Amino acid sequence: RHRTTFTSLQLEELEKVFQKTHYPDVYVREQLALRTELTEARVQVWFQNRRAKWRK
């Protein structure tokens, strides 16, 4: 699998949602996936990684 490189616009969208909730439900993730043109799975993994980073 290749590494997904996020654009600054995608990161902006993702971070905006992360500020509101660290655990977006499937509906929120789907909406975010559509807005960022990423798959829902990529969005889910981004949140997992972002939460790990936040905990440190």
Rank of each mutant, 00 (worst) to 15 (best):
E13Q: 08
L9T: 13
R55S: 11
T5Q: 14
R51F: 02
H22F: 05
L38G: 04
T39V: 02
F18S: 02
L11A: 11
T4S: 14
H2M: 12
S8G: 11
R51I: 03
Q10A: 09
W46I: 01
R55P: 12
N49G: 09
F6E: 10
L32W: 04
P24N: 00
E30I: 08
V45T: 12
L34F: 12
E37Q: 15
R50W: 05
T36A: 08
K16W: 04
K20Q: 12
E30H: 11
Y23C: 09
K53S: 12
A33N: 01
L38P: 01
R50V: 04
R55F: 10
V17C: 12
T5G: 13
L14A: 03
W46V: 00
R29H: 02
T36V: 09
R42P: 02
Q10I: 05
F18Q: 01
A33T: 04
R51W: 03
L9Q: 15
N49E: 15
K20V: 12
D25S: 11
W46F: 08
V28H: 09
T5H: 09
Y23P: 02
E40R: 04
Q19H: 13
W54I: 11
T21L: 06
E40H: 07
A52Y: 07
Q31N: 09
R29P: 01
V26T: 13
T36K: 00
R42M: 14
N49S: 08
K53Q: 15
R42F: 06
R42W: 08
L11N: 07
R42G: 10
Q44N: 11
R1M: 14
R55C: 11
E12H: 14
L38M: 11
T21M: 06
T4N: 15
R29I: 15
V17S: 05
L34H: 06
A52C: 09
L38W: 05
W46A: 01
E37H: 08
V45Y: 12
P24V: 01
Q31T: 08
L38N: 03
F6M: 09
D25C: 04
F6I: 13
W54Q: 14
P24K: 00
H22N: 05
P24S: 02
K16M: 06
R1V: 07
H22E: 05
Q44V: 08
S8L: 12
F47C: 01
E12I: 07
R55N: 14
A33R: 07
